[in-house]
């Protein structure tokens, strides 16, 4: 029997190769941490139902390949995602430097309303740290991203990262900033809500939200 949920969100996990995107996903959906994980080719899916403020919400997570040579294909999956985790590795300066590029792709290709959370992964490897918490926070602030440091190995902050992002999306739905019924929003009503067939309260829209408005 399929579990019921009120909302379904499409989530992306993006960032450079080897930063631990698949490890984060696997930790989140309850799989064991693996030291020798294969790099991702294409997309790996995961899903989980989480409870956010009393609302059961299902996340459909698309973990994409980070390797540069797959970049052109993975870009095509950005469209219509409600949220994204943008991952770098705190032990790799390169992965941090690449963030601007990833962000530019996400901002141009995904929907303008996408909620992005910056994740500094491999927090457990403090001795090899190359990127400080402060500079990453600053990057996050400058680019209007939320920010957390995580460890897919110990599980620290992993669930929080997904939850925090989901909460923000939900809050945007409640304030009307996001319309779940707008196609391409990356949000669907779930089995729990489809039966009620009710339109949500009319979102208060700003003119810039209106696609007709030019």
């Amino acid at each position: 029997m399929s579990e019921s949920y009120e909302y379904l969100f499409k989530f992306l996990v993006i960032g450079s190769a080897g930063t631990g995107k698949s490890s984060l996903l696997n930790n989140f959906i309850g799989n064991k941490f693996k030291e020798d994980r294969c790099h991702t080719i294409g997309v790996e899916f995961g899903s989980k139902i989480v409870n956010i403020g009393g609302k059961s919400t299902k996340l459909q997570i698309w973990d994409t390949a980070g390797q540069e040579r797959f970049r052109s294909v993975t870009r095509s999956y950005y469209r219509g995602a409600a949220g994204a985790l943008l991952v770098y590795d705190i032990t790799s300066r390169d992965s941090f430097n690449a963030l601007a590029n990833w962000l530019r792709d996400a901002r141009t290709l995904a929907s303008p309303n996408i909620v992005i959370l910056l994740v500094g992964n491999k927090k457990d490897m403090e001795e090899a740290r190359e990127v400080t918490f402060t500079e990453a926070s600053q990057f996050a602030q400058e680019n209007e991203l939320m920010f957390l440091e995580t460890s897919a190995k110990t599980g620290e902050n992993v669930e929080e990262a997904f939850l925090k992002c989901s909460k923000t999306i939900l809050a945007k739905i409640e304030t009307g900033e996001l319309d779940p019924e707008r196609i391409g929003s990356g949000i669907q009503y779930g089995t729990g809500t489809s039966k009620r067939l009710a339109a949500p309260k009319k979102p208060a829209r700003t003119p810039s939200d209106c696609a007709c408005h030019v």
Binding site: I41, G42, V43, E44, F45, A65, F70, V73, T74
Partner: peptide, 8 residues
Amino acid sequence: EFLMGVMH
């Protein structure tokens, strides 16, 4: 997932 992987 398999189709996407092979496509890539």
